[in-house]
Design a protein around this nucleic acid. Structure first.
Lengths: 374, 374
DNA sequence: TTGTATGCGTTATCAG
DNA sequence: CTGATAACGCATACAA
């Protein structure tokens, strides 16, 4: 039934663009053997179809001004020979690569995967290819510069920074100046009006939900402050509290991981009158709730928890997470659309802001519902 | 504080490989203006260093046979001009791209992200670049062929199939024959001895754990059968049961998602004497447990649950998941190493099999522990 | 509507 | 140890 071999290959795999042959010795001049490679070139197609390479090129790129009959012949030859455009040659000649670069942190995360799906979708629709460069240490400017350089060398025409860049020195500036760049940060953090998901409204939604339930104050477990999203949410949370006349309690810092959420949860458990927490991600919320329960404080009876993201598992937490949904895929699509607009110097497509949506499930309740609920 | 602009760019972004200038009209022959682009080329460096382009090339690629002094001069010029190799030109000339292609399903998953991290790591160490092609429908052979073609056109010298390929017809075969390909499937499914994680031992570990706890039989919630991993685990589970003299109950099919796990959980809840379940992924286990609890059957008191993966959230489930850990990143690294070995036609690096590890947490217990545990 | 002639920036060959 | 020079495969301007 599983008749596959371990890896599909053979003894002598052929490089896609085979190195040219060792040239034979002659007395006079001798060209290096032309088109010795397996892969047929435009010349081969042209010969087979009885036209010039120019015509082949035209047909391939779907230009007009080709007699239908000629086009058909060319296409037939293409098919017959299994001809395919040689991307490197094409971009050398045209000056265009249609490559999109993505820089991301090398940390496994659900959101990364989801955003990538969005980017990929748009890219392939627009005929672009995506190449990725990972950055292991998001605190090191140099690793970002390296990643950027790798992408530029590869010919990336635009770059999406799916990573927290908290600095923007000359070196980085020089790069973003010559290569259109979109910072995911800004696409989602509501710095301008031009955002997909306004992080600040996420924080507002969460905080006000808790307040409206009757909680006197709301504690906050923040994400890694390298990320703008984290900072914007924290600021908004503070501001909302102030608007409601309450002095914000100290932030409980964490770093997006469930472990850090767990530690934050222990801190909260030690605060007797804490009844409501706004946690900056679902993953951290899992940790917070676990710590709370271990300390004998039930959610939502003793403490209410709202978080952010609505990952697939949010609905299956115990209790199911009340959370503000983030449309990751849409964010990815928006980012890709934006870079491509920039690259093609076209009017920027309007970005449809997606309003963050509060999904009320079972992790929040009015204060003092102990014994009442459940 | 956040003095960034929305997207870092400007009115006239420059393509990385700028299109050549419109040529000026002369009477006689006139070359199209050479090197009009911003980016300096080898010629510029050569001129600046007072050497030939050949020497520049040699220095750049770190070949021997260059006088130290000359090398220094070239390097200085490179630095001064900000010269960088033009990947397209280089691969056109050399026939090598050093591009690795990855085909993945466009479904957001934690594991995808984790495996990618591993691939990226090795790739960049080996000087390769990674480009991705997504496949939306993993049931459609054509979408795989498309993805493969996109990668080949781009010049991928090797391909990693991080997606379930359950067919292998001529069209696919032709591609995997000319381009070294590694099926993630086979790297992890124990078809040969040459595997990173033997899926079959995962299933054995899980099933025997449950049996050794004293459960009479073990039910199984499987993943999507498009994935070999899913099938191998199911077969092994059956086999282990048979070895222990018990007739395997019918499989409860699911598709990796927590929702499908939830549905499977309802099915199990309806089976009075089911006391142990082997669930093929942590994400599904969240769903299974939720359904069980809703039906009034507690985990692990009434029903024990083991799953697979040990994702970051597994330890924060309620109860914490007993699970068999899968070293995703290592799998990614192994896959990348393998394709690169294939590409460079070097002796395949020995793959260190990583033994799957059973992490016992709180979701399993001896049968009939109701009232005892907790 | 089609063909001819360059050049894109680099590497490889071979001669000094 | 170094330099001329010919490809690599395609796209483009221009002529026909």
């Amino acid at each position: 039934m599983f008749a596959f071999t371990f890896s599909l290959s053979h003894d002598a795999p052929t490089a896609p663009f085979p190195a040219r042959q060792v040239s034979v010795h002659y007395h006079g001049w001798m060209p290096r053997r032309h088109n010795q490679s397996q892969s047929p070139s435009q010349v081969d197609v042209a010969r087979a179809a009885g036209v010039s390479t120019q015509t082949v090129s035209r047909v391939i790129s779907g230009q007009a001004n080709v007699r239908p009959e000629t086009a058909r012949r060319v296409l037939a030859a293409v098919d017959e020979l299994g001809y395919r455009v040689h991307a490197a040659a094409a971009s050398l000649a045209s000056g265009r690569t249609r490559i999109l670069g993505v820089i991301e942190v090398s940390t496994a995360r659900y959101s990364t995967s989801a955003i990538n799906v969005g980017i990929e979708t748009v890219a392939s629709e627009e005929g672009y290819t995506v190449t990725t460069a990972s950055v292991s240490d998001h605190a090191s400017p140099d690793s970002f510069l390296d990643a950027f350089d790798r992408l530029e060398r590869q010919g990336a025409e635009g770059v999406i920074l799916l990573a927290p860049v908290t600095f923007l020195d000359n070196a980085m500036g020089a790069r973003t100046e010559r290569t259109p760049t979109v910072l995911m940060h800004h696409l989602t953090s509501g710095v301008g009006t031009d955002t997909v998901v306004d992080q600040s409204s996420i924080a507002r939604l969460a905080t006000e939900h808790l307040l409206s339930l009757g909680h006197r104050t709301v504690w906050h477990v923040s994400g890694d402050d390298y990320w703008l999203e984290s900072r914007v949410r924290r600021q908004t949370w503070e501001q909302v509290l102030i608007e409601h006349g309450v002095t914000p309690p100290p932030v409980i810092p964490a770093d997006w991981t469930p472990e850090s959420g767990y530690r934050a949860g222990r801190t909260i458990a030690a605060i007797p009158d804490a009844t409501a927490v706004f946690v900056s991600s679902d993953e951290m919320a899992f940790g917070v709730i676990r710590a709370l329960h271990e300390a004998g404080r039930t959610v939502p009876d003793d403490v209410s928890v709202v978080s952010v993201d609505d990952i697939a598992l949010a609905a299956y937490a115990a209790p199911a997470l009340t959370t503000v949904r983030q449309p990751f895929e849409a964010v990815g699509r928006a980012a890709a659309t934006r870079v491509i607009d920039l690259i093609e110097q076209r009017e920027p497509s309007p970005i449809e802001p997606i309003s963050a949506e509060l999904i009320v499930r079972a992790s929040t309740a009015p204060p003092g519902s102990a014994g009442t609920a459940r």
